[in-house]
Design a protein around this nucleic acid. Sequence first.
DNA 1: GTCTATAAGAAGATAGAC
DNA 2: GTCTATCTTCTTATAGAC
Lengths: 209, 209
Amino acid sequence: MESTRDKIIRQALQLFAQKGYHAVSVQEIARAVGIRAPSLYNHFASKQAIFDAIIDEMTETYHKQAAQIGLGWQSGSQDAAVFASIGKEQLLTMVNGLFSWFLHDPTVSGLRRMLTLSQFEDKELGDLLTKLYIEDPLYYQEQLFAAMPPPKNGTGHSPRTLALAFYAPIYFLLLRCDREPEYEVEARTLIAEHVHSFSKTFFEQVRGN
Amino acid sequence: MESTRDKIIRQALQLFAQKGYHAVSVQEIARAVGIRAPSLYNHFASKQAIFDAIIDEMTETYHKQAAQIGLGWQSGSQDAAVFASIGKEQLLTMVNGLFSWFLHDPTVSGLRRMLTLSQFEDKELGDLLTKLYIEDPLYYQEQLFAAMPPPKNGTGHSPRTLALAFYAPIYFLLLRCDREPEYEVEARTLIAEHVHSFSKTFFEQVRGN
DNA sequence: GTCTATAAGAAGATAGAC
DNA sequence: GTCTATCTTCTTATAGAC
């Protein structure tokens, strides 16, 4: 059974992710959990301690999940062989899967929203947001592209530029879905077109078709 | 000379944009302006009224500035002729100019940050963020691409997909610069590569080079 | 581990003198 | 139009009974 502590973490995450730290009172968290405000202090020393625990635990959970999916954020070059021979359909399926995970998983989505709302107030949290959702994925994809044979048509796109061109539109659509859930349908269509277009433009050129 | 009212708007914008509505007290705004908290109420009925006035006035200012720059957000098709004959260097210069405006103009940047911090709490503000910084620019660029001759190599990229592929990486880098000002140097390099790469891949194909 | 009672302070906002 | 003084409510947090 879920411990009270975990229930606090879960409910507070949801509240912080929607309204931001300062707009949420400890009473509100307590009510969502089903206890009185003072009882929270049997589990956490302060409101800030709840926030910090969420950041720490959700970051850890995020990394665990990423590892389980098979995303070695740090070692994209090892996966390059897989990608070099991947088909367009498989690529789209994979992107759609990752998009769902980013958008709908309570941990990944909640953490991203919390960090988004705190990014300008606390530089550390802003840096964490950049690392988890920008730098790590971008670096991973950069390594994938770097490990592929150079394009044969002489356009000479750098791996980082390719990674940016591939990932940015997907992340862009994700951010819109974050605040407009009903947009997901349209986003899925655009992702499919984007992956198709990118694949055709760069992948097939790389392989010399 | 700047009126007290305008000074309140200006200082409150800066505070709200950095810490969010709930983290800023009226006393804090008053101190930044150089008056006592109760004096604020001679200019605005409530703290919320200050926030609302900022949103309204900054949105108006943003639109005025956009019109002045020559961005008819609503009528991109008229500008298509200009873009059809634009050079790569001119395009990059224009993108860099718009990037600077988005990133450094107190109105445009402050409004974007305020909306970012309120996007999940208030759906109207989230929608405004989407409209001003996502939908309008995207639609403008979509019209530009739509008014161009169709690609001759049969890739058949839709105008919306092209607009997404062009704009998303730029916006993506902008968001990172928002929380990491020192990243701007790197961002400028990547923008140049992106525009170069995009231009080469799509523009020159479109014109049959 | 949860409760009630309560402290101690900060918040948004108003009244009225100047 | 700004000030001091004040009100009311809400906030985080603690004390101590059960």
